[in-house]
Simulated assay, not measured.
Amino acid sequence: MSELETVFFAKRRNPYYVVAPRYVRTSAGIKVLHFLCHALNRMGETAFLIIYPHSPPYLSTHPALNTPLLTKRVMDYHRESGLTPITIYPENMRGNPLNAPFVVRYVLNYAGLLGGDEAYPESEYCISYSEAIAATVPRSRHTIFVPASDPQLFTPPPAGTKRQGGCFYAGKYKYYHGGKTSPVTEGMEEILRDRPDAQTPDQIRDLFRRCEVFYCYENSALAIEAMLCGCPVVFLPNEHFTDLIGKAELGTYGYVWGDDPAGLARAKETVVQARERYMELFALAEQEVRRFVDGTQAAVQQVTYDEPMSDAYVPKIKASERYFSVVRTIWLMVRERGLLYTANVIKNRLKSGRIKLYEA
């Protein structure tokens, strides 16, 4: 007899726990983690977010994404059901703070650059964000370049629009590393992030639509968004920016490495192809996520779930909420089925130890 295929019952699949900070539109790395969780659920897997550092639930996720937050109740259900979670950490988290039985390390940036460990144990299932990063990660199993910029928002201006001037971004380079910007960007409008005076996504899009060139001092999704708007990009290398993370994925279209007039001319000529290339990345990413699912579901079969994971970063049911839930359930049962029926149910469940907050 074949396995029952229906939408009414959940598949017995090992779940995915994705550890990520709260959703922030200005961080490509954070968006990638949330998008991965969303994609896994869209593919029919079971995936949850663990928000670290802690953030109130109503501020933690994007309302349009299928990214449920993991709870203690769900963790207990998975363990009692014999399911081993596949926990995905970004590269900037040290070690295995949740005591996860099966660890996936998603290396989104060069190891140790933004915190975290500089090397990963052989027990971890490592995956990389790009080919450039994968080349620096021993035993990287998959390269999953999740497109984090929205090509529906960042679009070219109407045909015939006249472009003039330029703009630049030097977020981490200027405000984190204390770097000095080049004279080439002097007097240009600066794109700001995570500040009260920062531009909105619509304002950034409009800026890219009217500028002739965008100068970028670091790896940033803003460069992709500029090219999606038909604005060529000049990457300005510095001591903190020596390589382009997505060069293999983006190809050679729409940008130039270094302030070279000939290179900029070519970037202007090929920026339309940059958008075409980017659109192809969605299908490639989906294929790789499916291979990742096959690989992790097979590998986790060899792992035993002996010690419970830490629930330090997941919401828990308070004692008062537990008490209210039990009282409300009993009251509803009395109202609908009567006192004698309710008393018998409670007696039988106490005897069998089946009083829980959920039923398997």
Rank of each mutant, 00 (worst) to 15 (best):
Y52I: 15
G115S: 04
H142K: 06
P15E: 07
R290M: 11
G338H: 06
E124W: 12
E131F: 10
E286N: 06
F154Y: 15
P261M: 03
M333E: 11
F9V: 15
D259G: 09
H177N: 09
D117V: 08
Q301A: 15
R94A: 08
V289E: 00
G44Y: 03
A262V: 13
P15C: 07
H54T: 12
R354P: 00
G179Y: 06
F282P: 03
Y120S: 05
A265N: 09
N14M: 01
R25M: 10
K347V: 10
G29T: 07
R22I: 09
D311V: 14
A47F: 01
T61C: 09
A283F: 01
T136K: 08
M75W: 05
T6N: 07
N41E: 04
G263W: 01
S149Y: 04
N348H: 10
F241Y: 11
Q301V: 08
T84A: 07
G44A: 05
V303Y: 04
R12A: 15
Y341G: 07
Y129M: 13
L244M: 11
G29C: 03
G115W: 02
C37E: 02
P308F: 06
W331D: 13
V326T: 11
R12G: 14
C37T: 03
G187C: 06
L339G: 01
V146L: 05
K162I: 14
A248L: 00
F168I: 01
E307W: 03
L65E: 02
M43A: 11
P232H: 07
A283H: 06
K11F: 10
C167D: 00
Y110I: 12
L281R: 06
T181P: 00
A298P: 04
N348Q: 12
L332N: 15
L4D: 13
A262W: 04
Q302N: 14
Y16V: 04
R105W: 04
L222W: 00
A223G: 14
E288I: 02
G254I: 04
L153T: 14
A148I: 01
V19N: 02
F35P: 03
Y217H: 10
A343E: 08
E189P: 01
F8S: 11
P158I: 07
P15M: 08
A148F: 05
A262M: 07
A100M: 05
Y173D: 03
T26Q: 00
P196M: 07
R337L: 06
I133N: 05
M333H: 13
D243R: 14
Q297M: 06
Y341A: 14
F48H: 13
A159T: 15
E190D: 07
Q164A: 10
E307H: 11
F324D: 15
G82T: 10
L83T: 08
Y278N: 01
L192H: 13
Q199D: 02
A135Y: 04
D202A: 15
W257K: 10
Y16E: 03
N348V: 00
I50W: 02
P63G: 10
I88H: 04
Y323M: 12
A20Q: 01
T26N: 00
P147M: 05
T46S: 12
N238D: 08
R291M: 03
E122G: 13
V103R: 01
D76K: 13
